[in-house]
Design a protein around this nucleic acid. Structure first.
Lengths: 218, 218
DNA sequence: TCCCGATTCAAACGCTTGTTTGACACGAGA
DNA sequence: TCTCGTGTCAAACAAGCGTTTGAATCGGGA
């Protein structure tokens, strides 16, 4: 029966597997995550994944969809801005939201980490993720970039590479954490540092777009 | 005996293992690379790695050192510039060299790929790599950034984050290849495209530094 | 009370991994 | 010619992986 009974300790096993799966997949990536560790964290038997989801891959897909739902609630696509926000504010909000999602340690902390994992170590789920999650956000960023330059000053390719440059900067701080920590010890990613980072990436990118819109070499 | 004999088919097994190891480690990362595939590509027995290097990890270390040596020959630290090159030219040369190393398909094509792997999926070798390879290049980039702004206009932290932004942009095009290919089909990384990419990253970053050096928000 | 479907569990399966083993081949030095 | 060190090889090993199995457990409806 689906109704919660005394047999299941509070939350259903299925839900605990989704939660534990999110954690472990985000930490280790799909391939290096083990079903055994996920089940251990969910306080479930090794066979639980296969019983509830079929196999490891379909658990992963379920985790991704679950993460999407949670994340869209917490970080809506409109970034919580008013319709008449300036392009500059929209860029700032985009970058802030991006960084917060990646470094989030809160409830479903792992959505951003799962996405950034998937970008560098793709699985069979990548096609769907690109279509449903990444492309919409990327289009949104491109439209912000377009609005930041006088009309017609940036080619379609320039808009695209600018957007890539912005995304690349944000992801770098997460991917290369191990290296950055060694290059600059005693750096922590507390909320305050993330705000400074967001401010830096925003300003740096505004400068980059500005210069490209100015055209030519100098 | 070390002297080449009729028994070894042309190049020594040890050398072929280094070469094959470089390829496979660069393609799959340390963990997902298998000794069996490396040995197969090197046309050697499965036991060859353990005989010549002790274990997989020490083969990896040997591959890294080997790659370092090859790479330093092809891409010298001075970037082949004259002493009186402008900071702008030095940045352009740095970015170009960085991208070429990552996308290189030539002889020891895998040095850049190995480094970029190590940054996002560190192994026990990371500490040494940061000290001997990454930190020197990063200091070099920071000094370029400093020279691009009027003296005293950028804080030490700003110089550091600018350098990170530049590195992040370059690495992104490599790490996120799978996603970028889906966002923009029929994109190839031929030498010509890499030059355009280098020009973009350079210009974008010059704009970013410029704006930050100008100070304040706008 | 009995039975049934849903769920959990320990144990095992088949596979891949890195590593070890012992036999074998071969050129050089005595 | 015999011996020895170096290198190669097929085969096996132990450990870890995802998955399967068949029995045990439990509540609710007949």
């Amino acid at each position: 029966m689906k109704t919660s009974t005394a047999a299941s300790s509070n939350t259903e096993t299925r839900d605990r597997l989704l939660e534990a799966g999110g954690e472990v997949f985000a930490e280790r990536g799909y391939r290096n995550a083990t079903v055994r560790e996920i089940c251990a964290r969910a306080r479930a038997n090794v066979a639980a994944v296969n019983y509830h989801f079929g196999d490891k891959e379909r658990l992963y897909e379920a985790v991704l969809r679950f993460a999407d739902r949670c994340s869209l609630e917490k970080y809506p696509l409109d970034l919580g801005l008013r319709r008449d926000a300036t392009p500059e504010d929209r860029l700032r909000a985009f970058v802030r939201s991006f960084l917060l999602r990646i470094f989030d340690e809160g409830q479903p902390a792992w959505h951003g980490k799962l996405m950034s994992r998937e970008m560098i170590e793709p699985t069979a789920a990548l096609d769907r993720i690109v279509d449903e999650v990444i492309r919409p956000r990327f289009e949104q960023l491109q439209s912000i970039v377009r609005d930041l330059a006088p009309p017609g000053r940036l080619s379609a390719e320039q808009v695209r590479t600018c957007a890539s440059s912005i995304v690349g900067q944000c992801l770098h701080y997460h991917h290369a954490q191990a290296v950055i920590a060694r290059l600059q010890p005693r750096l922590e990613y507390r909320p305050k540092e993330i705000e400074r980072l967001a401010e830096h990436v925003t300003a740096f990118s505004l400068g980059g777009i500005e210069r490209l819109a100015r055209g030519g070499r100098r």
